[in-house]
């Protein structure tokens, strides 16, 4: 699933490790989401979107090719 996590994280000046700690997941999980190898659960997707003050639809694009 395409997403804007890497872009939003860079804008916020956060490292993958810092975002991972804030979300309560491993740095590898953040990396896997950013590289679209892993689709997060709905609770984690909501947490990520809220962390960047966006809606889930603004961060994750299920229908993008």
């Amino acid at each position: 699933m395409q997403n804007r996590i890497r872009e939003l994280r860079a804008l916020a000046g956060l490292s993958q490790g810092q975002l991972a700690e804030a979300m309560g997941v491993s740095r590898q999980t953040i990396n896997a989401i950013e590289t679209e190898r892993y689709t997060p659960s709905l609770p984690l997707a909501i947490s990520l979107a809220r962390h960047f003050s966006h809606s889930v639809e603004e961060v994750f694009h299920a229908d993008a090719s």
Partner: peptide, 13 residues
């Protein structure tokens, strides 16, 4: 090894 050590560390693991 990290996942083997802590299989329930997070949802991806």
């Amino acid at each position: 090894a990290a996942i083997l050590n802590r299989p329930a560390h997070d949802e991806r693991a």
